[in-house]
Design a protein around this nucleic acid. Structure first.
Lengths: 204, 204
DNA sequence: TTGAAAGTCTACCCGTAGGTAGCACGCTGG
DNA sequence: CCAGCGTGCTACCTACGGGTAGACTTTCAA
């Protein structure tokens, strides 16, 4: 049990480092942030960080990959859920949007700093992204087959929808006019309308 | 006239530097590219670059701003053109997509390296982006007023459409299955369908 | 109370890359 | 053939920041 708690504390420290790193990378960019900056924000020193991460780029990977995994899971779960393609697409896009906005900083950092990842880390993430695209394309194809969707090019449509929603990381302001749920709902509705689904927005 | 030609040569040199910079920043990122790299690619040395640009970040600004200006112009021209909102939206989005894809590298660099611009340069560009959003929102509002478009939230829709098309810089492959014109046309069609316009895609 | 292990800090190294001073080469006109 | 200028190069400076060695402190078990 002493062992157990030590692990929790270790995990907690690791997590705090990641939190501060996300905050600073988001605000000042990856190269615009020094490890000393992160350490200072935590009230510790640089070697402290090195007891939890092997390098600065490992830190970067550690804050990107899990977020991409969450995005994939959101779509995977929705795609596997019961319901019509229309219902599942709405769920998939609303949940995906939620991940994008809840992890806005992580998403932003990933897309900006991709080039700073090691080939290994980038490869792993790109595998996830390919699965994401494949799932989304598959869902669209189902809807086309069932006659619910009308799309000229399924693969382009998948990229367009994915992009429309991913892009929200660039403009969403948590303190703005719209709540996170509003935005997710609206974006999911727009996605449905885009594929020609009936009731892209329920009409009362 | 001797004067005249000297200026042309100066402009040409400046242009070549920018070309190589775009290529390398796109491939390796801004901080991942050294001025020596760019110089080497041109068969010159670093001080040569400094006779044409005051600093590395000035180089960055010089390759971002004109591209953003082009995007704005594309939408501004289409918005001011004659025709129904539907027709003008299609034109605006097709032309905007064309800029995004023709200047794919510049667009990618801008979105990735925003944080490396000086506050001044970034401010100037953000002014342009705000105009872009305003124009697009205005066009959508016209379509809603005329009954051609059905959109829950015009401002979110403008951001969604702009994002969907901007995003193409992440996935378009010039050597891929689709020509640039194909992609522009498909994306413009998807944008129309997204706002509920009739004939998002002409049906024969 | 003591010894060892875990954890953190102080102090440093050193490669890298943005930026510059001053020289050398070649062109043009006398 | 030479003066002078424009142009680009050689050679350098310097700051910064990622990464590390080793000392110090704290904790806990015996």
């Amino acid at each position: 049990m002493a062992e157990h708690m030590r692990d929790e504390i270790l995990a907690y420290k690791r997590d705090r480092i990641l939190q501060e790193a996300v905050k600073l990378f988001y605000k000042n960019g990856f190269t615009g942030t020094t490890l000393d900056d992160i350490a200072a924000e935590l009230g510790v020193t640089k070697p402290f960080i090195y007891t939890h991460f092997r390098s600065k780029v490992e830190l970067l990977a550690a804050l990107c990959q899990p977020t991409i995994e969450l995005s994939l899971e959101a779509v995977a779960n929705a795609a596997a859920a019961p319901g019509t393609p229309t219902e599942r697409l709405r769920l998939a896009m609303a949940d995906f949007a939620k991940v994008v906005l809840q992890r806005q900083a992580n998403i932003a950092i990933f897309f900006r700093e991709e080039k700073n990842l090691t080939p290994d880390a980038l490869g792993a993430i790109n595998t996830l992204r390919k699965q994401f695209d494949r799932l989304l394309s598959g869902l669209l194809r189902e809807g086309v087959a069932s006659g619910e969707f009308a799309i000229p090019d399924v693969d382009v449509a998948a990229l367009a929808i994915g992009g429309m929603i991913s892009w929200a990381y660039t403009w969403h302001r948590p303190e703005g006019r719209l709540t996170l749920e509003d935005v997710c709902g609206t974006l999911a509705g727009l996605a449905l309308q885009m594929v020609g689904a009936a009731a892209g927005r329920p009409r009362g």
